[in-house]
């Protein structure tokens, strides 16, 4: 039986993890590879590395990091952040990334999705969508949620599916950072609307929040950062808890 996925997300800047992490057993708290390896051992199903560096060196630094991750990690990982061209993706996949996630660049130029799918296949193209509720509707936002657009979440989700995206990573800007749970109403609607997997992101605070996004939100996977980095939730315990609630997980 296909299981629901638990995905820790690591923010990367200049080749180092940025969000504070609270791992006593880490020799180097800024080393993405050490942290990734620990998550993999604890039962993470996949990892997402989100590059937030803004330097000119960023592409080269990220490519080198991706290669080192791929050498060590025996679970799939996605790389995102600032991807705007086919060449960006070529380098990341060639260095061993399993998937890439594309956000603003796809909204600005939707044909990019078709180009990426034609060249690399749907299976490695994740489209990240940041959205916020505006006047009873959900609108797509850009640049990490800072810039609003007039595009409806529902229209955009259908369009990225039609253009061949393999998965949608949906972040609710209203829920992100609140630790009050995922946007399950919107997620349930999204999961009805599209027939590609949807990863829920934004709002994880408790183990029940994960259960709820699988049961009520019908999400295929759930992504979180700080609850894992600060050990507020242990992946091993989380998966045990989900299993006891009858949710299929890999243990």
């Amino acid at each position: 039986m296909l299981t629901k996925r638990i995905i820790p997300c690591l923010d990367i800047k200049d080749g180092r993890t940025v969000k504070g992490v609270n791992f006593v057993d880490l020799r180097d708290a800024g080393d993405p590879i050490e942290l990734a390896t620990i998550y993999a051992k604890e039962g993470a199903d996949e990892l997402v590395f989100l590059d937030i560096s803004a330097t000119e060196e960023r592409r080269k630094t990220l490519a080198e990091l991706v290669k080192r991750i791929a050498e060590q990690l025996d679970i799939p990982f996605t790389v995102g952040g600032g991807i705007s061209k086919v060449e960006d993706v070529t380098i990341l996949l060639r260095n061993g990334a399993d998937k890439v996630s594309v956000n603003s660049a796809a909204v600005k130029r939707p044909d990019l999705i078709n180009e990426l799918v034609a060249q690399f296949g749907s299976q490695c193209i994740v489209i990240a969508i940041d959205a916020k509720q505006v006047d009873d509707d959900w609108k797509v936002h850009l640049v990490g949620g800072k810039v609003p657009t007039e595009i409806s979440l529902w229209d955009w989700a259908k369009e990225v599916e039609k253009r061949g995206a393999g998965e949608i990573l949906f972040t609710s800007m209203d829920h992100d950072g609140t630790k009050n749970g995922f946007a399950n109403e919107a997620l349930a609607k999204l999961n009805e609307l599209v027939n590609i997997p949807v990863i829920a992101s934004g709002g994880a605070g408790t183990m029940d929040h994960f259960a709820n996004t699988f049961l009520q939100g019908k999400s295929d996977a759930a992504l979180a950062a700080s609850v894992f980095h600060f050990k507020e939730i242990e992946i091993v315990e989380l998966k045990q808890n989900l299993k006891e609630q009858g949710i299929p997980v890999r243990i």
Binding site: L2, T3, K4, D45, S122, E167, N195, I196, R250
Partner: peptide, 12 residues
């Protein structure tokens, strides 16, 4: 199209 396509993830 009974399930999501592609199938993505860990299956037994």
């Amino acid at each position: 199209d009974e399930g999501k396509v592609p199938q993505v993830g860990w299956n037994t």
